[in-house]
Design a protein around this nucleic acid. Structure first.
Lengths: 340, 340
DNA sequence: AGATTGCTGATTGACGTCTGTCATTCCGAT
DNA sequence: ATCGGAATGACAGACGTCAATCAGCAATCT
């Protein structure tokens, strides 16, 4: 009744334990026909190697390393907390989770850090993806060293990584658009998108998604050209004030990137009825704003689920099991389904 | 640099391995001062027992058993699929996940099944909670046998279980109410709730939540008395048709329980503009309806996340680690953030 | 013939923990 | 001083796998 061991496999295949081991661990030096017999016995018995026993024997523990932007960017603070919490929990499962700081929004600095990794330093690394030649090269170097790379939050050039764990940003944008559309009922409206930079792929994707939904025919909704604020609150304050003064008809605001603190502060002083506001990432600030009715919806990428799934995937990759691409959905938070 | 072993602890405490083991596994027969020295060494070194090695040695594998309603109820079909998928995956982690069939909506039958469990049959059971004297007694019997019980989807009487893994149904109802409110803009409206039975706690909670949000002052929204359909499509068809004929002003429908197939079929034949529709649980049918624009929003309890977290919690309980009550949030699905 | 090569089997000692046995030490009570 | 029991130590054999070594055997080459 209990699971078969490699001994059972060897016996079933009519070879010695040594040979079964040589086949299982691809040590070579085994005749073709023996390989086949062992493989046949393996699927015959449904043998699954006991990973824990193997790890014990190898004295292996998984080392996963995350490169996270430092600084007081609220979302990354949340992300970091989630990783740290998991690090503490997973220690008992032989997972060592390291966090390395990198400057925010700086693909070259990240690339430089990655190129400092040596073979054996870790079993898998997780980074925030972005499109950058230097980064692509650094990731390719890691792949050559057989260190897999998982991208989080925002994807990187597709050829150069193992797995993307994160939301579909076009879908997230469409979702924001749908909420804005829903809130306008059948009436007209003008929606202003605010983003960090059009160069950032996730921001571009979200804008694209919102555009798709808002400009479907049969609606009287207008999506204004986005204002770019480089994640800086002073620029946001200035540009948004100018826009609102120039266009008093704005009925909706879609904040695509960071810098929500400044936006929320401005909303507090706005006359009612204020525009319908959708923004991204649940943080202490956006949560408070939602509770205070300063904004209407938050679209979150569920960092905790994201990290949990990323670690599962990393372990699967390290164990050379088939890693099913995990799915993270953009979550809509209204005042009433806030966590905790 | 590597994690300390029990040998290290024993050495640090100045006792033999045997004594350290006796303390760790509460075998008794150890002098008070030795217990203290060992415990001190344990936290001094931050010792964590290697669970995998321990399980290996004990030849232990976790047996978790779920009691799930059989029948073609769409949501439970999804739930069952999720459990089966996890069962296959977790096998490699020494988790045996069993599924036992029980008749749907029958707390007494479930209680009877539970009372058939004997000590040692499994390490933890998961059930769909409900309020029933027989069920409470059966769960208490299991507790006495030191078999923890986790409730899913809907909670049971609080004293008689270890952990509830599932959404807050009041919050789910509030969320539905918020969506309906949002879709009405500032205009008036009449919302019709449809539910299986008021006796069912999750249904009651959801209705309560929706009521809270829809009847807040300053709105011109009216929540009609719910129609009860006992999860049966013929009753739904009949009662809903009667309601719609009697009250042509209905602008919103909140379907709280099961029986959505019949509702969706009726919506297909409804003249536009149809009411704004919110319902629960993402299944093949509700998904198709969302894509076909027959309904507007689905509130889902994320069975996959729920089961993943339930298993994590079950394992933590079995390992006698502190089990943090996991959090599952009701998720809002619009057309644009559907998974996969 | 002897040497080389390729494949196979047998064996061993880890890894960290559990469980059991047996012998020893210590301490308090007699 | 003796005895009993409690506390402790020492040790061994598992659990399933890894990793390494050594020996044996047949087929092939020189």
């Amino acid at each position: 009744m209990r699971n078969p061991t490699l001994h059972d496999v060897a016996r079933a295949a009519g070879v010695s334990y040594s040979t079964a081991d040589r086949v299982l661990n691809r040590r070579g030096g085994v005749a073709e026909k023996s390989v086949l017999r062992v493989q046949h016995a393996i699927d015959e018995l449904g043998y699954q190697r006991d990973i824990h026993a193997a790890n014990l024997s190898r004295r292996r523990s998984y080392v996963f390393r995350f490169y996270l932007p430092q600084g007081d960017h609220s979302f990354f603070t949340v992300l970091r907390q989630v990783v740290e919490a998991q690090a503490a929990q997973r220690l008992a499962e032989r997972m060592q989770i390291q966090i390395h700081d990198v400057p925010p929004l700086d693909a070259d600095a990240l690339a430089a850090e990655l190129s400092r990794i040596e073979a054996g330093d870790c079993d898998c690394v997780g980074i925030i993806g972005s499109d950058s030649g230097a980064l692509t090269a650094a990731v390719e170097r890691l792949q050559a060293m057989r260190i897999p790379v998982v991208t989080l939050v925002s994807d990187a050039a597709v050829e150069a990584r193992m797995l993307y764990v994160g939301i579909d940003n076009v879908a997230a944008g469409r979702t924001a658009g749908r909420l804005l559309r829903l809130a306008h009922g059948r009436g007209p409206g003008r929606v202003l998108p605010i983003l960090g930079a059009l160069a950032s792929r996730d921001h571009r994707d979200r804008l694209k998604g919102a555009h798709e939904v808002l400009t479907e025919p049969g609606r009287h909704l207008h999506l204004l050209p986005p204002i770019e604020v480089q994640d800086r609150s002073d620029i946001l304050r200035q540009k948004l004030a100018a826009m609102l003064a120039a266009d008093p008809q704005i009925t909706g605001i879609y904040s695509i990137g960071a810098g929500n603190r400044a936006l929320i502060a401005m909303l507090r002083d706005m006359p009612t009825p204020r525009p319908f506001v959708v923004l991204h990432e649940l943080t202490a600030h956006t949560r408070a704003a939602l509770e205070a009715d300063l904004i209407d919806a938050v679209i979150d990428q569920n960092p905790d689920v994201e990290i949990t799934l990323a670690l599962q995937a990393m372990k699967a990759i390290a164990d050379e099991l088939p890693a099913t691409p995990p799915e993270v959905n953009p979550t809509i938070y209204l005042r009433d389904n806030l966590p905790r």
